[in-house]
Design a protein around this nucleic acid. Structure first.
Lengths: 128, 128
DNA sequence: ATAGTCACTTTCCTCTAGGTACCTACTATA
DNA sequence: TATAGTAGGTACCTAGAGGAAAGTGACTAT
């Protein structure tokens, strides 16, 4: 054990064998990606600082990391304008927009069932 | 700092202000929950060791933690039979089953667009 | 001359999720 | 006698994610 580093790592650490949607979950629902995609979706093309201010609690380092990852996955398009001061704009790609019905589906489930989750938690916490 | 532990933590760390689906994502797509729910969904009610073997790479400690969390959130029902040796069965709750179309939607997106993500990654890695 | 803007980058540090290993009590089987 | 199976609990440890804060470079405004 300890030999599987590069490509065998997927079999050792990623639980995709038991779940065909794990790959998508890693891409779309890793930390900070849904607030970024949601902000980009609702406010359209915008600059780095606008994203930073709208999300509010994210640090620039993490925002850069997540945007790079989203760009690499083809969900976000980055446009660099070599001006002074530099201007960079981010927008959702075509591929990213194809997630919109999925997010709407999630929002629907949230509206319909989130209070049931809250009730289940209160019941669980109060009994045992 | 360090004072916000119980309820102020949600405002300090959770990015829900910018994204109305963050709460659902935390509940449904936190680590190991999709393999567990998927296995429970496809193989029906089953015991702890069956889940452990089917998922394969999960440790019993983490499996216990995740199952407790899913039970608390009302997505999974745990049934304890006080026999010797003890027998415990897990199954998806009604609330958990309401996630099925969402998971199907995700599987559809995966089948339709996962290769585009892979292509985007290769393009990104080869150029810069 | 100083401060401010933008889009990051870098360094340092903390926190915790998760892994390893061992433990429980009881029974059936070899 | 010893081992395996059952569903976990507990203690310890490490790797890595993520936060805080300062720096960078080129230019502008005061």
């Amino acid at each position: 054990m300890g030999v599987e580093t590069t490509r065998a790592a997927s079999a050792a650490t990623v639980p995709e064998l038991a779940c065909p949607i794990s790959a998508v979950v890693d891409i779309v629902f890793s930390r900070w990606t849904t607030p970024i995609l949601w902000t980009l979706h609702t406010h359209g093309r915008q600059r780095f600082v606008e994203l930073e201010r709208r999300i509010g609690t994210i640090t620039p380092k993490v925002l850069t990391q997540r945007l790079r990852q989203l760009e690499r996955d083809g969900l976000v398009v980055r446009t660099y304008h070599p001006e002074v001061p530099p201007r960079v704009e981010y927008e959702i790609s075509e591929l990213g927009r194809s997630l919109a019905p999925l997010f709407a589906h999630l929002a629907d489930w949230s509206a319909a069932h989130l209070d049931e989750v809250e009730q289940a938690r209160q019941a669980y916490d109060s009994e045992s």
